[in-house]
Design a binder for these strands. Structure first.
Lengths: 117, 117
DNA sequence: TTTCATGTTCGATAGGTGTCGAACATACCC
DNA sequence: GGGTATGTTCGACACCTATCGAACATGAAA
């Protein structure tokens, strides 16, 4: 995996979202790789169940630095969207983009995650 | 990911298969992790399309040492089965076991792999 | 038995990954 | 402004991983 750079578009006033890859740019290997981790799998499960959530509301049993790292991996792989509101970041699943790019994949993974517990 | 040890059962005469985890022991994170790699995704795709194949018949553009490594990862994550025949190893997808453990997951991934090309 | 083909394992290497604490950046509130 | 809350980034660390060539193991073929 190499360092990634995403075009964030012309900056007008303030960004309200963090940069993320376009829906067409998602690769299966990246998505699978991002989900090959218990903590991130747990995050995705929660996001699906609860919808948008604040980053800090997740108790993953790791430091906030590590938590921040996991959210970055998910965002850069195209799985999540991060909305900025003040000092808080709200994360949500890009279910529509994922469905458009890889139909049926996320539902199957979410279902499998249930069977995994 | 820690070192794994699988019970191969009582050795009678000669082993005809390499050790692999039981269907119930598969974890989603391990499966996702194993598939978070282009080469291995390609292998899984081919195995699904062609059925059982000899390890050496795959041209992944890597050395045979690396190829052997990828097959080991797939086998230890529970995705493939390896049958021994002389000096050759024949690999196949454990589609039944995967379907039993994570219904619909493999088909969705295979479908996504098509969309990824 | 010698040779060959198919793989695995070893040792090495470069780079990735999860983890942490500490420092930094920001926005909000009093 | 000063303090507080929410996150990100940095530097460090241990470990994992993809990769290779070379050596080894093993079964088949000549």
């Amino acid at each position: 995996m190499s360092v990634k750079q995403f075009y964030t578009g012309p900056v007008t006033t303030q960004a309200s979202e963090l940069a993320q890859p376009g829906a067409e740019d998602l690769t299966l290997a990246d998505v699978m790789h991002a989900l090959g981790d218990r903590a991130r799998l747990e995050i995705v499960q929660s996001l699906h169940a609860d919808g948008e959530r604040q980053c800090g509301s997740f108790d993953l049993g790791v430091s906030k630095a590590t938590r921040s790292h996991h959210f970055k991996v998910l965002r850069e792989s195209g799985i999540t969207n991060t909305r900025i509101d003040g000092t808080a970041r709200f994360v949500s699943l890009r279910e529509g983009d994922l469905e458009a790019r890889f139909p049926g994949l996320l539902p199957a993974i979410l279902n499998a995650a249930t069977a995994d517990a």
